[in-house]
Design a protein around this nucleic acid. Sequence first.
DNA 1: GTCCTGTGTT
DNA 2: AACACCGGAC
Length: 225
Amino acid sequence: MVFISLTTGYVGPVGDRLISIYERLLSAFGPQDWWPGDSPFEVCAGAILTQNTNWENVRRAISNLKNKDLLRPRAIHELSRESLALIIRPAGYYNVKAGRLKNFVAFLIDEFGGNLDTMFSMGLETLRPMLLDIKGIGPETADSILLYAGELPSFVVDVYTIRALMRHDFIDGDADYEGVRSLFMDHLPADVELYNEYHALWVALGKSLCKKTKPRCEECPLSGI
DNA sequence: GTCCTGTGTT
DNA sequence: AACACCGGAC
């Protein structure tokens, strides 16, 4: 099926399991067509703004930036943190996130002349540790930028992924970010479209059924897997 | 473990 | 009024 055309080799029994989970999610929710962003830079900004924040509030903050023609690296670099904070206010944590956005664009401008194509041409293994060195860019934000803005095959793990995997006993309670990311990357082909869709499907599951409180487990497409 | 914060839901 | 929201720094 889809799996065969994506596969570069045998991915093992764990990979087979991960693929069957993927196929169930895809059947239940359909293709998600992420990321909601008109440009790679918008995706980078969205990845920072959505930290622990619902997407609707992020969308408002991005809309504010667009309306002022400020959704550009140079523009954000030249804005004061205080001014930027007021503009992204709907996203919450606005003082923190204004600093984080400016940290990212300072890195982008200093290291790559403000050019995202140049940044992503560094490749996954080189770029990921560089992104993680930026204050305010943690593993989930870095992987979201790499995968959804750069189209580099870095699997994104989030609270929804962890929660669902724990509820189905695929991972235990002390599982950390890198461990769960490795679970996917060590057993699946390094395929951008697969990683894109798979993460988006975990989010679809987490928002609709596998919620923090009052999960609707009886409707779970993964029951009995 | 605690802090950072607006907006919608319960 | 309390909780939840595609985290990360300290």
